[in-house]
Amino acid sequence: MKVLKRLTAANMIWVITAYVCLFLSIIIQFFWTIRIGMIADAIVSREKIEIKFMFIMFAILLASCLFIYLKSLAGKYATERMAHTLRMDFAGKLLKSEREAIGGYEAMSKAQNELTASSEGLSGIFDVIEQFLSGILALIFLLFANLRFTLIVLGPLIAVVLLINRIGKNLPGLVNAAMDKRISNNKTAYMIISNFEAVKVFGAEEFFEEKFKKELEEWGRLETKKERISAVTNSVSGILSQLPLLILFGVGALLIWRGYMTIGTLMIFLNMTGSFIRTITNLPSWVVRIKQFLVHLSRTDIASEIQH
């Protein structure tokens, strides 16, 4: 968290711009969804659609395009700047340290892995926040629009989340173990290269090959296990995430037949719920991702402290 705060503070203007654009682009999307619902209602009741209405639609579409563009531009720029700050901080510390540039293979290898993982994580985090925000805003909208209807759909959703959460429980530990193995593989490879002559003179090729193979196998084993669990998690969550929609359709159809709801409103609800469902089903994996990212980020600090 410390590192993240520092990175954000150093690039405040860009971070704020990115999030303002993000917020606006989501809100404008909502307007679009609502208008589409209104058109559907007009079609069903064979009303005439006014030219003015179409103009507004067109304006919303333009604004939406503009903000999606601005959001992704500002987001990428902010992310890149933060990653740059991170790398420069690290390089600066390295320069200031008394030791030779290579403060042990382990420290270097670790720091490089952590830096790469952190930079990748930074751009991933922006996507996560974007989806999370649009889900939450959708929920707020739904609660205000029709409290009872929303709550009926929410019930099964929470069950789904709990279920997926249980299946994916040992995933974070595995991911960490696999990453540590990768670092260790890296280390062995680097060790052989930088001590090539000693390895040859003392006939240690086999020893290192064996070591490398063992580590590779271990990593492969962890990676397969990880993939297997996430495959199960993903397919189960894929099937289960359809369940609330089914409920929504059923309840919605009933309400329309009874005249409590229009087709347009149901369309809006489907769209908004879809956005919220995505958020809820992905939430556990996002939490894991963010946690991992924060661990990597904090480790870049540890890695640079080793140098001193």
């Binding site: 060790m191 001590n195 003179v201 003392f202 006939g203 086999e206 290192f208």
Partner: peptide
């Protein structure tokens, strides 16, 4: 290479235990 032993300017120590650094797996 099998007939010689060598000590260089750099000790060429590796992230292993002291024993492994001496025996190099033998």
């Amino acid at each position: 290479i099998k007939k010689i032993s060598m000590v260089m300017q750099e000790a060429m120590l590796m992230p292993l235990t002291i024993k492994e650094n001496i025996t190099l797996g033998k």
